[in-house]
């Protein structure tokens, strides 16, 4: 079954969606979109380094994403506004990564594959890494769910209940770096944030509890990966961006529907 590249691609997409969507809810609730960007963009530097030293791309991306996330956490609250700091770090990381890749004359690599993903070339080994990483992220988020939620609501409230908000932040950082490393092959570094945020944002108007939002975002992201893959096959479009287009369209429909319901309720 895994011999078919379409099957492998579908499984890779679903695995990525499974890891990204619930974590994406926290990224939305805590307003960490730019943080996701910085971590993801740094991963391209990790890709360049792993290729230069003949290391697995996954490991290199993971390590550099982690370093970046830690750097941001350390530098926050030191005189720069958070969005300025993240804007600087996200784009510098991308620029340095691209320059580093250009030095790799011995290895001919297709940068586009890492920027926008190359889901159709996912191997059995990649699939193992993606599902392994996704399993860790899902387990981590499920295990810390209540503590993460309390710390997101109010750090002092968490402290009073014996939860260390700093530790929960670390859990999120680690999970985010893992998602980046997992998703790099599927949607590429430039579109990872989209897979984190758009499903969560699309289901927000129809969710009553955090759990409902996490679950429906996951279902939507999985369906969109599958649908995007089919569409890209049919229309011969790049798969990663097509998947993101599908979630984005879902977001558009959801926003219009939410607006109409509100309007209807106001009139009745």
């Amino acid at each position: 079954m895994l011999d078919d590249f379409m099957t492998r691609a579908a499984l890779a997409g679903i695995g990525t969606a499974l890891a990204a969507a619930p974590l994406g809810c926290f990224v939305v609730w805590r307003r960490m979109a730019y943080f996701g960007d910085a971590t993801a963009h740094a991963a391209i530097l990790g890709v360049a380094l792993s290729l230069a030293f003949s290391l697995p791309v996954f490991a290199g991306a993971l390590v550099v994403a982690l370093v970046m996330a830690t750097l941001v956490a350390l530098m926050s609250g030191r005189g720069y506004a958070m969005d300025t700091l993240l804007g600087v770090l996200a784009h510098s990381a991308l620029a340095f990564g691209l320059v580093a890749v250009s030095f790799l004359q011995t290895v001919r690599i297709d940068v586009m594959a890492y920027l926008f993903g190359d889901i159709l070339s996912v191997s059995r080994g990649d699939l193992g890494v993606i599902w392994g990483g996704a399993a860790i992220v899902v387990a981590l988020v499920a295990w810390r769910w209540s503590a993460l939620l309390t710390a997101t609501l109010n750090p002092d409230l968490a402290r009073a209940a014996g939860i260390d908000p700093k530790r929960e932040e670390l859990v999120l950082t680690l999970a985010l770096a893992l998602v980046v490393a997992v998703a790099i092959k599927v949607v590429g570094v430039l579109l990872i944030t989209a897979m984190l945020i758009i499903p969560a944002a699309a289901v927000r108007p129809f969710s009553r509890t955090p759990e409902a939002m996490g679950l429906s975002a996951t279902v939507l992201a999985m369906a969109a990966s599958f649908g995007g893959l089919r569409l890209s096959y049919q229309f011969d479009t790049p798969t990663g961006p097509t998947i993101v287009c599908v979630v984005a369209i879902c977001f558009g429909i959801s926003s219009v529907a939410a607006g109409l319901t509100r309007h209807g309720r106001a009139r009745s």
């Binding site: 609730w29 939620l149 409230l157 209940a161 009553r208 955090p210 939002m213």
Partner: peptide, 25 residues
């Protein structure tokens, strides 16, 4: 310790029923 904060800024992106809030953490 039971803590009642001065105010709780609920991010509008975070859906939360009263029932769910009572069960945190």
């Amino acid at each position: 310790i039971g803590y009642v904060p001065q105010r709780l800024a609920l991010d509008p992106t975070l859906p939360m029923t009263v029932r769910r809030f009572l069960g945190l953490p």
